[in-house]
Design a protein around this nucleic acid. Structure first.
Length: 508
RNA sequence: GGCCCCAUCGUCUAGCGGUUAGGACAUCGGCCUCUCACGCCGGUAACCGGGGUUCGAGUCCCCGUGGGGUCACCA
């Protein structure tokens, strides 16, 4: 389909040749949808995968449907239990809860493909009976020889020649291992109306008699996915763009069983900041990394949601808003490029939207181990750094100085502002504050302004020296906020120490 | 190479035949200001090319070009 109008759900009979078999999806509707996320446990949970999971989850929640989690672990070589756990942890952290799947069960289990082997075998046998699949006893050696023969012709793309395609039970080598292959139609076209890409048709001659089940009984991806989607009652499959080439085969498997394929939606890929494939070489791709960096799950979801989907001019979404507005027809069809700057913007927006108490609680695990926090002042302290921090890690770092008995000073800041000339002013400022009974920010500002006027000074004349004395740094929340959160005693002590540091440099 | 998909500012995108082509991030000015942020105001910046269709194309069609995906007993 060209880039003009997609017509998801609307099949225009004028557009296809008569012999095209089209799996006609129902128009997108608000009837409860059964969707799934089916990762392979072969590593970390990739943020590209998270976006796929998110869109499915949003659709399930929006339609009051069911979100199924299924583990596609048929690649025994690469699948690990640790990776499976990593997926669970990441999904839980993100708050993408599943209604059916590992841990919660459900009527269509088991939800690990390696535990569904009999199911695949049954369906494969059924297909063989129907004549839509067949046993192939070709050996590895025979296949390799054929592969080599074909590649000599200059074509690196092997195609199984169909040796066993037209044989039957009487030809079976009963004691030999075999694979089950799909008897793919040799002519015609298989197509569907993709919910995000529109109409897609692929000539069947492009397909080959793919292996459905290995010699060891493990299903291959296309078969496992199709059979699971079928038996789990999945009504809409949304996945990455890279699967569009698999789709015709899966539709063919459905048809071979006399079934109708679910609705299909293929999301464009996410590229790295350099335009190349997103990988750990050009970006942080593991969900766990964002968690450890102190990103908020909602921010991760928000950023990913907007990468490939839009709702007018809105950029910041709560979970509820995403659920409310999400729609396949507003998913873009062009590959998106990952952009950390935009991600950080979304993240800090969500961070700022948090209450001091909530942010404080979330930042707590990121506090330095040796920090002894004064709970009474903690939330207020968090409040003063909220607009300045992007992540929870930064929040924790920025709030650190409030709770130190001995401040660590930034050398450059000290050298620049705690100079001899500042010592007297600092001392005087301290004395003035010592006389104040009200130590809230408004009172402090008023009192300070009065003092400045009396002394003929400007706030600029004391602010930086005071700031370094109070926080150890040249950048911090506002002076009066810092004083208020620190409290009178600590403030006075720090100012005194600061004045001492300033005058000590005189000694040189 | 076959097949399939894609093409609006640097980036994410809005746009569904008639718009001064809008918003956001980034960037550059300015305001606010005790620093740093936040916030606010403003600027620079885009329809890949060529043909059609049409009174009128970013929007529809075709051809190029350029990206991408995929061609396994991986998923």
């Amino acid at each position: 389909m060209s880039r003009g109008r997609r017509a998801p759900g609307h099949y225009d009979p004028r557009r296809g040749p008569a012999n095209v078999r089209v799996v006609l999806p129902l128009a997108p509707s608000m009837t409860a949808e059964r969707v799934r996320f089916a990762p392979s446990p072969t590593g970390y949970l990739h943020i590209g995968g998270v976006r796929t999971a998110l869109y499915n989850w949003l659709w399930a929640r929006k339609t009051k449907g069911t979100f199924v989690l299924r583990i596609e672990d048929t690649d025994v070589e690469r699948s690990t239990a640790e990776s499976t756990q990593v997926i669970f942890d990441a999904m839980k952290w993100l708050g993408l809860d599943w209604d059916e799947g590992p841990g919660v069960g459900g009527p269509n289990g088991p939800y690990f493909q390696t535990q569904r082997l009999e199911i695949y075998k049954d369906f494969a046998d059924k297909m063989i009976e129907r004549g839509t699949a067949y046993r192939c006893y070709a050996t590895k050696e025979e296949l390799d020889a054929e592969r080599e023969r074909q590649s000599k012709g200059g074509n690196p793309y092997f195609k199984y020649p169909g040796w066993w395609r037209d044989k039957g039970p009487k030809d079976w080598l009963d004691d030999k291992p075999y694979v089950v292959r799909l008897k793919t139609p040799k002519s015609g076209t298989t197509g569907w109306v993709d919910l995000v890409k529109g109409r897609i048709d692929v000539p069947n001659e492009q397909q080959q008699d793919v292996v459905l089940i290995r010699q060891n009984g493990m299903p291959l991806y296309n078969f496992g996915a199709a059979i699971d989607d079928l038996t789990m009652g999945i009504t809409l499959v949304a996945r990455g763009d890279d699967h569009v080439v698999n789709t015709p085969i899966q539709i063919l498997i459905y048809e071979a069983l006399g079934k109708t394929a679910p609705k299909l939606a293929h999301l464009p890929m996410i590229n790295g900041p350099d335009g190349k494939k997103l990988s750990k070489r050009n970006a942080a791709v593991s969900v766990a990394e964002y968690r450890d960096m102190g990103f908020l799950p909602d921010a991760v979801l928000n950023y990913l949601a907007r990468l490939g989907w839009s709702h007018g001019d809105q950029e910041i979404f709560s979970r509820a808003e995403m659920i409310e507005h999400f729609d396949w027809s507003h998913c873009g069809r062009t590959a998106a490029q990952y952009d950390l700057k935009k991600f950080q913007f979304v993240q800090s927006s969500h961070l700022r939207a948090l209450s001091d108490t909530d942010l404080g609680a979330l930042a707590r695990p990121f506090l330095a181990n040796d920090l002894k926090v004064d709970d009474a002042r903690y939330d207020a302290a968090v409040g003063t750094v909220k607009t300045r921090a992007t992540t929870l890690v930064e929040t924790a770092q920025m709030v650190d100085f409030y709770f130190r008995d001995t401040l660590s000073f930034d050398e450059k800041a000290v050298a620049k502002f705690l100079v001899p000339a500042a010592a007297a002013t600092l001392t005087d400022f301290r004395a003035h504050l010592a006389a104040q009974s009200a130590f809230d920010r408004a009172s402090l500002e008023a009192a300070t302004t009065a003092w400045l006027t009396e002394k003929g000074l400007q706030i600029k004349d004391v602010a930086q020296a005071a700031r370094v004395s109070l926080t150890g740094k040249s950048q911090s929340p506002g002076l009066y906020e810092v004083l208020e959160v620190l409290g009178k005693d600590r403030s006075l002590a720090r100012l005194e120490a600061g004045a001492a540091m300033a005058s000590r440099t005189t000694g040189a």
